[in-house]
Design a binder for these strands. Structure first.
Length: 543
DNA sequence: GCCGTTTTCGGCCCGACTGTTTTCAGTCG
């Protein structure tokens, strides 16, 4: 069973435990484990049984959960889950997806009315039977019906690129409102997750009235969900939910920290605060009800003895310890990238336009995939001082064999064997990396999803043979790229971010790859795009 | 169920909002 499925199974267990009324801490432990396993770059089965790097070493996973995760990884089954399902109908989990319905009410609905499915719930709500339950009135009943009607459209996550295109213009319009001193987008958007569920915009201002109204009357807004003093929520025409929060300037740092999350990171920070007898909230850091700081984000971290942590790292994946010990990475930055891998199988005008655009952006080198040496030669006149390399993508066979390639500077090996299991895929990639015939190993994808393999094992071989690991920056190929980058970095190998752009607009997508590299703790030395043209040439000659 | 510069037991983040309530439980982020 792959990591993602293990994660969602553990989440199911958490849902059912919650409905049963189990300890909230036990539920939290399962949710934490689900999150941790889903984020692992390599399959659970490749982790060592004991000692460093084993399941038990992961934060929030102890002996018990490690056993259950292994049970799932090996057999695909979990005795506990069967047991839970025998007591509580699985279909109740879907009730939790409706806004206003949590575990307590789901349980009450099941036990009080014998309702197990959304269909039965809808019928009961229409007949007004739900309000027989304690704590449920006509409003909640209506809300549930509305939730059932809208459930298909809700809760869909969109790519960061898509969210950016929708949100940036709105923020620009909000910025114009008089009295707005600071405005930032927080949430997973600021942490640069590859997909976002909703968008949190944070504003420091005296009064909330004008800015909330501005969002409500924005041309992109479709529906108003909430309209209070400090919080305005709307649904855009695209279906994306935007939450706007207004805080006083003296709370802006604390609010930025709080609304940037992640939730797990916030919990960890607040736990540190509790040990120091500090209360940390979106309004500031408090000592015995007296505000001690909160205007700047740095202050919040400083109050618990930490250095400021870049938003991309705030996932409770070791950033807090690293910050305390002064061991945070110096994350690679946009300005440090001086090369890219783009498409070269375009017509002459297309090549010229792409090369000119990259040159204008200050690139030092460009690998052009599928362009002939002649075409490269002709394109050189648009390239200025920029160095152009000829590149090609060659298929890797199921046994790791490399297809024939022409005379080029850069060979990228890409595996297409869709039906390989984790072990065979890992073997094939290792064989390809050892072949001495490729410079870059592309990240394997199939059906729009990354294929699982032992990233650490492959990256180690790549390091030994001077092979780079590709990180595809196209928005549709970013899933799990952060964990992948982290695993590559930890193995001492290097990634290369490839926009695979066919035009200038797509070339700008390299920053989405950069975001994921940063989320993977990568520094300039971990990313081959930071190399000078000369340094890259040297590296290629060795490979 | 996890975890330990107060701990192997007894803790485990914090506040807003909502709808239902006469003081609060449940949900949400």
């Amino acid at each position: 069973m792959d990591n993602e499925t293990i994660g969602s199974t553990l989440d199911q267990v958490a849902d059912l435990l919650e409905i049963e009324g189990a300890s909230v801490f036990r539920v939290r432990a399962y949710r934490g484990a689900a999150r941790t396993v889903s984020a692992l770059a390599s399959p659970v089965s490749t982790l060592p049984e004991k000692g460093p790097g084993s399941l038990e070493e992961l934060p929030g996973i102890g002996k018990d959960l490690a056993g259950k995760i292994r049970e799932l990884a090996e057999s695909g089954e979990l005795a506990l889950l069967h047991e839970l399902k025998s007591r509580t109908p699985e279909s109740l989990i879907h009730l939790l997806e409706l806004p206003g319905l949590g575990p307590k009410r789901a349980k009450a609905i099941h036990e009080g009315l014998g309702i197990d499915t959304i269909e039965e719930l809808e019928k009961a709500a229409r007949e007004g039977r739900l309000r027989a339950l304690k704590g449920v009135g006509p409003k909640l009943e209506a809300q549930i019906l509305e939730g059932i009607a809208a459930r298909a459209a809700r809760g869909k996550r969109i790519s960061l690129a898509e969210a950016e295109a929708q949100v940036e213009p709105i923020v620009a319009r909000l910025r114009e409102v008089p009295g707005v001193s600071l405005i930032e987008v927080a949430g997973s958007y600021r942490r640069r997750r590859d997909n976002v569920g909703d968008v949190d915009i944070l504003v420091a201002a005296e009064t909330s009235v004008a800015i909330g109204k501005k969002l409500i009357s924005d041309p992109a807004t479709d529906k108003v969900l909430a309209d209070g003093d400090t919080k305005t929520s709307v649904l855009l025409k695209s279906g994306l939910q935007v939450d706007l929060r207004v805080v006083p300037v003296e709370s802006f740092g604390a609010a930025m920290h709080y609304f940037t999350g992640s939730k797990a990171h916030n919990i960890a920070i607040r736990t540190l605060g509790v040990r120091r007898k500090l209360k940390i909230s979106e309004w500031g850091v408090f000592q015995e009800d007296k505000r001690v700081s909160g205007e700047r984000e740095e202050d919040v971290f400083a109050s618990v003895g930490l250095a400021w942590v870049p938003p991309e790292l705030r996932e409770d994946r070791g950033e807090i310890d690293a910050s305390r010990e002064g061991k945070l990475p110096k994350l690679v930055e946009r300005a440090e990238l001086c090369g890219d891998v783009v498409l070269g199988d375009l017509d002459a005008d297309g090549i010229a336009a792409l090369v000119s655009a990259c040159e204008a952006k200050g690139a030092a080198w460009l690998v052009m995939l599928g362009a002939s040496r002649d075409e490269i030669q002709r394109a050189q006149k648009h390239a200025g001082k920029m160095k152009l390399f000829a590149g090609v993508v060659v298929p890797i066979g199921a046994e790791g064999s490399i297809g024939t390639s022409e005379d080029v500077d850069v060979v990228i090996g890409e595996i297409h064997a869709a039906d390989l299991d984790e072990k065979s895929l890992t073997q094939a990639l290792i064989a390809a990396a050892k072949s001495g015939r490729i410079h870059v190993l592309a990240r394997p994808f199939h059906g729009g999803k990354p294929k699982q393999f032992d990233v650490e094992a492959v990256a180690k071989v790549c390091r030994e043979h001077g092979v780079l690991l590709g990180l595809d920056a196209r928005p549709a190929f970013l899933a799990g790229a952060d964990g992948y980058a982290r695993a590559v970095k930890d193995s001492g190998a290097r990634i290369v971010i490839t926009s695979r752009a066919a035009n200038a607009e797509q070339a700008a997508h390299i920053r989405f790859g950069l975001d994921q590299a940063r989320r993977g703790w990568c520094e300039a030395k971990d990313v081959a795009n930071t190399l000078s043209a000369e340094a890259l040439e040297k590296l290629l000659a060795r490979g």
